[in-house]
Design a protein around this nucleic acid. Sequence first.
DNA 1: AACATATGTGCATGTGTGTGCATGATTGCA
DNA 2: TGCAATCATGCACACACATGCACATATGTT
Lengths: 123, 123
Amino acid sequence: MHTHARIMTMVMNMQTHYDFEQCQQLIDERLDLPFFRAVVDPVRSNLILFLASNGEMTIGEIAEQFPQNRSVISRHLDLLYRFDVVLRRKVGREVYYKANSKVVATKFAEAATNMEALLSLSE
Amino acid sequence: MHTHARIMTMVMNMQTHYDFEQCQQLIDERLDLPFFRAVVDPVRSNLILFLASNGEMTIGEIAEQFPQNRSVISRHLDLLYRFDVVLRRKVGREVYYKANSKVVATKFAEAATNMEALLSLSE
DNA sequence: AACATATGTGCATGTGTGTGCATGATTGCA
DNA sequence: TGCAATCATGCACACACATGCACATATGTT
């Protein structure tokens, strides 16, 4: 085994014992909980995919396709907007929403990478 | 551009308009919402990292390090166990828990891949 | 058997949030 | 200006769930 590879393995398996506070901070830095709590929801995840596949639509058009009330859809979309998950623009009295797929995909990819790194502490 | 590459691009960008029901089913198949709703929680995500870094511990030992009551920690761990996020074994009257890091990392990686594929419907 | 320790569980409480209705605000149109 | 359409928001209600206490259960010890 090469020296370089051995060192890399040591670094990767460096076993650290984090206490509660350290875990708190690491999770906070590497896992965007508010984002995931917004996305990992039956209605909102459905909305994201729906917008990603159907393109830009108004709140009214979207709400027609969902069992929830229009005001409920409006609030869900507003929440997703605050997390940059969807984009919106106002045209007259209508508000058009569309998925911000890149952000969602990136967030999931980042989380996967970070969790992989965080949990691979061996032991 | 090669014919093969052109076809791949077409497939990847094939634009499909899913209705509510189809989105519901696709999300259900490709995003394990119950799993993420279990993991994406301030206390439970902390527990996972804590166990991943500190190795196997009893409920009492774990609870000493957390602000929550021991019974609360017990219930959180039991929930994580039901999603295969942690492993446990009973030794005498003590219950030892440890992180099932592989499952967590795999789930996040799968979700990232699936979301990337689901949301890359162009448009 | 009697007691101590570790954990599970029933219960009450508080908090967050999803939901729909009613209403207000904004914009377009006649 | 008056009216209709679209959306935002205040409000009440329901429900899920996190929490801690008290107690039950299981196991070890004397």
